[in-house]
Design a protein around this nucleic acid. Sequence first.
DNA 1: ATAAAAGTGTAACAACTGTTACACTTTAAA
DNA 2: TTTAAAGTGTAACAGTTGTTACACTTTTAT
Lengths: 222, 222
Amino acid sequence: MENVDLSACPICSSLNIEDNEDFLQDLKCSIKTYPKNELIIHQGDVCDALYMLTQGSVKTEMITENGSLLGIEIIKAPRPLAPAFLFSDNNHFPVDVTTLEDVEIMRIPKDEIMRLMMTNPDFMKQFLKHNSNRTQFLTNRLQLLSIKTIKGKLAHFLLEQITADEKSFTMNRNQTELADFFGVARPSLARSLSEMVQQGIISINKKEYTILDMKRLREQLV
Amino acid sequence: MENVDLSACPICSSLNIEDNEDFLQDLKCSIKTYPKNELIIHQGDVCDALYMLTQGSVKTEMITENGSLLGIEIIKAPRPLAPAFLFSDNNHFPVDVTTLEDVEIMRIPKDEIMRLMMTNPDFMKQFLKHNSNRTQFLTNRLQLLSIKTIKGKLAHFLLEQITADEKSFTMNRNQTELADFFGVARPSLARSLSEMVQQGIISINKKEYTILDMKRLREQLV
DNA sequence: ATAAAAGTGTAACAACTGTTACACTTTAAA
DNA sequence: TTTAAAGTGTAACAGTTGTTACACTTTTAT
C-alpha cells in the first residue's frame, strides 16, 4: 500500500503520528483496494466500522423509492465515508458508493474509533467537527432540493462555486450527473442551461462555466 | 422552573444524577422561557452553545433563497436543538425555530458540553448517537424531497406513519404545514389529497388519516 | 356568544418539467 | 486508429404543479 497522508484527513490530522506504518499496525484495521467504476457499498449495508477512503475518489448516490437516482457528493481521499452513521440506532449506509478511480479503503472497527476518542480529545473534537460539517452539507443539499425551478437550482449551485473575483470554474460533473444531483431529468436541465446561455447569463465551454450576468443570475432565485 | 425529566432526554439520560437541582447548579447554564408562537431563533444566528428544550415544543423551518418556507420538524421537550451545529466550522443555525406552546430553554456553554464528554463516556456515546440519528433524519428528509410527485411524497410519508396492524394515525400538521414539509404549494397538496380520497386510497376525518388501499398507495411511489 | 382568524375545498389557467426520440459530438477503449 | 460508448442539443407533447381567487368551515380569542 502507498503511504497515507493523514495530515490531510479531516478527522485524523490531530493524530500526531511519527510513523504512519507503526500507527497502522497498532490500529486494528484492514485495507482493501477496488478497481474503477465499481459499486462497493450498497444503500442499506450495515455500517459497523469506519470506512476511511485513503486513496482515490468515489461518488455517493441515493436510490429513491420510485427507483430514480439522487446524486449526493463526490468524495476524494483522505476522508471517512458516512462517519455519522457509525453510531446511529439504525446503522445502515444511506447511499450507494461507487468508485470513480482505483481506490483504497481502510476499515477501522467501531471499538477502535471509540478508543481513539477516549484517549485523544483532539481526535474527538475533529470527529465531532467533521460530522457537524457533514450535517451542514446535508442541510445545504436540502435547501438546493427545495428550490422548485431548475434555473433556481442552477443559480444556487453556480453562485456557490464562484468567488468574488473569479467568475469561472471547472465543473466536475457531466450533465447527467448534475441532473441527478439536482434530482431533475437530464433533458430538462439541458433546456434550462441552453436558455440561460442564450439569454447571456452564463457561458459554457466544455467543462468551463462562466457567469456573465450576476444580477440576472440572482434573479433566477426568486 | 419545573423539574426537568432528564431520563427522557436523548443525550442526557446517561447522566446519573440523583438531584437534578444540584446538577443544574454545578452545570454553568442559563434558562429562559418564551411564550407561544414566537420566533426565538433565526436562521443564521450564531450557535455557540447547546440549546436544550426542557419544556414545551417548537417547530423548525428553513427559509429558501426564493423566500419560501421548508418545514423541517416538530421538536418536543426534552431534546437539544441543532446539537450538530455546535462544533461545525460555520456554526450558524440552519433553521428558524418557532415556539408552538410556552417553552423553556436551557443554554449550556460549549465548554461545558466538552467537559461532560471528556468526563463521561456514556454522555459522549449518547451525544454521538443522537447526532447520528439526526443525520439519518436529514437523509430521510432528502429522500422525501427528491420524490418528484406530490402523491409520491404523500405515499412515502403516510407509509412511514402507520404500523403493520394499525392503518390509521393522527396527523400533527395542518395542510399548510404539511405542504411546507413537502416543499409544495398548499392548493396542490389539497388537490392530490382529495384525488386520493376520491379514488378510495385513503380517507380523512379531521386530523385522522386512514389508509384504505395499501396496494394502490404503494403504486403512487412509482 | 360572537367576531376574527385560520384552515380547507375547489376551479381555471399559466408555467414548468418529464418523457421519448433522435441526430450529433466527444471521449474512451480495443 | 478505429469503433463503441458516453455525453450533449433539441424538439413535441403529455403530465404535474403553481398561482390566484373565492366560498365555505372550523377554531380561537375576546
